[in-house]
């Protein structure tokens, strides 16, 4: 899925969490076009991935809003600016071009060039949690998989899926018909997943098409990168071994700073120091907003990120439109802004 042609735009935003999304709005009001890159397959960042259904109580004027609803509302708010999203991919490199613009490559081969870069990467990239089992690295790629790229990889294999959430159940349902044998391993006989998936999994178990084991993974058996079995331990401490040649652990995602650390920006304790006037990094034209930045008095709140986005956009304007004068206007009264928002009378 390589798309090697170069995309040129005003601003590239790294991270589609709430701050990255609101940055589209503030930049849009100031006539800057945005492309947004995110490693997840959906927008919303932590709000959508970690706590879509959990309530947030400190968004101004929204006494209570769920992570997903906040994301949906931001998408509605930025819709007039038609941001372009590049999901399921991660910006791997950032380099300065001779003309002063910035070039970025993603791991999916997307090639972006922009006058301004806004890093709104929160806690970093979401990556699958890796079970802390000794020697697991040796099996990765041949026998241990944290995602399913091609279902055919698993045809006629003896599979163990571990976990109790939607990913574990979705892949249990999808791979059971292909697998020689499929065992679902979860630590308790309750699943936090879509009720219809849980019901469908129970039917497969009742029909003898899936084995359900209430236990935890205690160790791996095999050699030369090829698994032969998984050691399980139940809550009474009893151990057993399930034969398998493929393991799919689905324990959710965690955040790692990732390639941002190699962008050549000054870092302090895995955060990007910025000034509090422009929220610019050590590289002019590269900004950092939201949880990933640091400055004296920083609070890791969504509302702080919104404020940072608004101030960042002022300096971004000076870079993107050097010949134009920055005008401060209110959306309530400015017909110019209302036109951009598509609400002009």
């Amino acid at each position: 899925m390589s798309e090697n042609h170069m995309i040129e735009t005003d601003v590239v935003i790294v991270g589609a969490g709430p701050c990255g999304l609101f940055a589209v709005f503030e930049l849009g009001l100031n006539d800057m076009k945005c492309h947004v890159v995110d490693i997840l397959d959906k927008v919303g960042g932590q709000c959508a991935e970690l706590y879509p259904e959990k309530p947030i109580y400190d968004i101004p004027a929204l006494p209570v809003v769920s992570g997903q609803e906040l994301t949906d509302r931001l998408m509605q708010q930025i819709e007039p600016f038609k941001p372009v999203f590049h999901l399921n991919q991660m910006v791997e490199s950032l380099t300065k071009l001779d003309d002063g613009r910035w070039k970025m490559m993603t791991d999916a081969g997307t090639n972006l060039v922009a006058k301004v870069v806004v890093i709104a990467a929160g806690g970093g990239s979401f990556v699958p949690k890796k079970p802390p089992i000794k020697g697991i690295d040796a099996y990765e790629g041949a026998s241990v998989f944290y995602s399913v790229r091609r279902m055919e990889t698993f045809r006629d294999r003896t599979i163990v899926i571990a976990g109790g959430g939607d990913s574990a159940l979705d892949w249990t349902l999808n791979l059971a018909p292909l697998a020689k044998k499929l065992t679902l391993v979860h630590r308790r006989d309750e699943f936090r997943a879509a009720p219809h998936s849980v019901a469908a999994m129970r039917e497969l178990v009742a029909a003898g098409k899936v084995d359900l084991r209430i236990a935890q993974i205690a160790g791996l058996e095999g050699e030369g990168g090829q698994l032969s079995g998984i050691q399980l331990k139940d809550d009474k401490g009893e151990t057993s071994v399930v034969q398998c040649d493929a393991l799919l652990p689905f324990y959710g995602l965690t955040m790692k700073l990732g390639p941002v650390a190699q962008f050549g920006l000054n870092l302090h304790e895995n955060l990007i120091p910025v000034d509090t006037e422009k929220f610019e990094t050590s590289e002019p034209g590269v900004f950092a907003i939201g949880d990933i930045n640091s400055y004296p008095g920083k609070l890791k709140l969504i509302l702080s990120g919104f404020h940072e986005a608004a101030l960042m956009a002022q300096q971004a304007f000076r870079i993107v439109h050097p010949d134009r004068k920055l005008r401060f206007q209110y959306t309530t009264s400015s017909s110019d802004l209302q036109q951009k928002l598509g609400v002009a009378a």
Binding site: P132, I133, G164, H186, R187, R188, R192, Q216, I217, Y251
Partner: peptide
């Protein structure tokens, strides 16, 4: 909390 612990490893009582 019990449900969120599903995302941890080596769960004990």
């Amino acid at each position: 909390e019990e449900a969120t612990l599903d995302g941890a490893f080596g769960i004990e009582y």
